[in-house]
Computed example of a mutant assay.
Amino acid sequence: MHGSRMVVAGLLVPVLCPAAARADIIGVGGSAMLIPRPADAQLGVLTSNTTAFAWNEAQGVTLAAPMTIDAAAPGMYGSALSFVFDTIGAGSVVSSHFIHFDTVGGSFQTVEGSVTFDADILGVIAWNRQEARHLDESDAAFGLGTIFSTEVARRGVFDVGDGTQGGEDWFTISPDQRTLAFHLQVSTPFDEIRVLTVPEPAGLAALSLLGFAAFRRRRPAATNVSADR
């Protein structure tokens, strides 16, 4: 945020100019860990058997074209049957965040955790099958130079069979649309989720000028004089 100063009635007062719109991860729970955006998140690179990594991606992006999302409403998503494909319109301003769970050597592991944001969840992208590669399609807009493994049929969630059985993966969007909780089971490939939020533009800082305190003369305290008797 850039700043300047102005003089008001002899006082030097800071004036803050608005910064770019953004949204951030403000909390993680369970097996989730917040990390800086990685340069490489390809299959087999960023691995852990106990931790799902989360990071902030592009901020305040104005969509040049409609973007497909797989979920938006609060509630639980336990299979591909619970997805409701929709689009966010071109011209919308959104911020992006990423959750990534890839195990060491492709071993079978399970994690549970949560990620909380300081802005409302607008949509979740977590489906990547041959007929609908939603994660792949969103990388260019939000990936910020991170290298991803693309054209991986089960890169997202619900990767058993055709994704309709459920049971191995689930995630929830909280009623206030600020937290995404997840349960992910992975052998190979990995599980990945992209979360889009509504960034709040940084407004002008409130400029509160307190009125000058009026100086008033204080009367000297009265002296108590006892009358002579």
Rank of each mutant, 00 (worst) to 15 (best):
I35A: 06
N49W: 03
V45H: 00
A54E: 12
M67E: 13
W55H: 06
L34H: 11
I26F: 09
G29Y: 12
T50A: 11
S48W: 02
G29P: 07
N56M: 03
A73R: 10
P36V: 05
I35G: 12
M33G: 10
T62E: 10
A71F: 09
A72M: 13
P38E: 11
G30S: 10
T47G: 05
V15H: 05
T68W: 09
W55P: 01
A19D: 07
D70S: 10
E57S: 01
T62K: 06
A64N: 05
T51S: 03
M33L: 14
R22V: 07
E57P: 00
I26Y: 06
P36S: 13
A41Q: 15
T47Q: 09
A64P: 00
R22S: 14
P36Y: 02
A71N: 10
A72V: 10
P14D: 05
P36E: 07
V45S: 08
A65C: 04
I35H: 10
T51C: 05
V45F: 01
A73Q: 15
L46D: 01
A21C: 06
I35Y: 09
A20K: 08
L16D: 09
A21V: 02
I25C: 15
T62Q: 11
T47R: 05
A41C: 15
A41G: 15
A52C: 14
L11N: 13
I35D: 08
A52W: 03
Q42V: 09
A58Y: 00
N49K: 00
P66T: 07
P18S: 14
N49Q: 04
S31P: 07
M33P: 02
L46G: 00
M67T: 15
A64G: 09
A73C: 12
N49A: 06
P66S: 14
C17K: 13
D70T: 04
L34S: 11
D24I: 00
V13Q: 01
A32I: 13
A41H: 14
G27R: 11
L46A: 02
T51R: 02
A32E: 10
W55R: 01
P36L: 05
V45Q: 02
T50E: 03
Q42H: 12
V13D: 01
